[in-house]
């Protein structure tokens, strides 16, 4: 692409990545979550692909597929943690420790250390969506080139 597109992409990319990470990280406090933040980061990957060419993301293809499987496995394992009660039981909520702080009833004060397994599941689904949609975009970009994929 032209130098204008590349310059604007260099300015815009850190902001988009930071916003996607914010949406995933605060999924249990604000609107959004793993799927939405993952979609935002994957669109940033599409911007990288369009602005800097297909060759810039080619070496990350195996990493993306590995992250996709890691996100899926982490999600199922987090569901299996609550298997003594029921599948997807939230065993970390309200017992102290990691994300175990309980919330007072009423309006949202914005405590980050709450909600049990929900932030971890947000990160698992976020990794899965980033890697899945990112690898779809990368595969579409690499298709039909003269070099092997």
């Amino acid at each position: 692409m032209s130098v204008v597109v590349r310059t604007i992409a260099r300015i815009l990319l850190p902001i988009v990545f930071a916003f996607g990470g914010y949406v995933i990280m605060h999924g249990h406090l604000t609107p959004g979550g793993g799927f939405q933040g993952g979609a935002v980061v994957a669109s940033a990957l599409a911007l990288v692909l369009v602005a800097f060419g297909e060759a810039s993301l080619k070496k990350y293809k195996d990493l993306l597929s590995a992250l996709e499987s890691l996100g899926g496995v982490a999600f199922v394992v987090l569901g299996l943690i609550g298997i003594p009660f029921t599948f997807f039981a939230n065993v970390l909520a309200g017992v102290g420790g990691l994300f175990g702080q309980s919330v007072p009833p009423g309006p949202n004060p914005g405590y980050l250390n709450t909600a049990g397994t929900l932030p971890l599941m947000n990160w698992a689904v976020g990794l899965k969506v980033i890697a899945g949609l990112g690898s779809v975009v990368v595969l579409f970009g690499l298709f039909g080139g003269e070099d092997d994929r």
């Binding site: 249990h28 979550g33 909520a93 909600a115």
Partner: peptide, 11 residues
């Protein structure tokens, strides 16, 4: 808020 200890009901 009592069961899940989360403020975001949708999540």
């Amino acid at each position: 808020q009592a069961e899940v200890a989360a403020n975001n009901v949708v999540t």
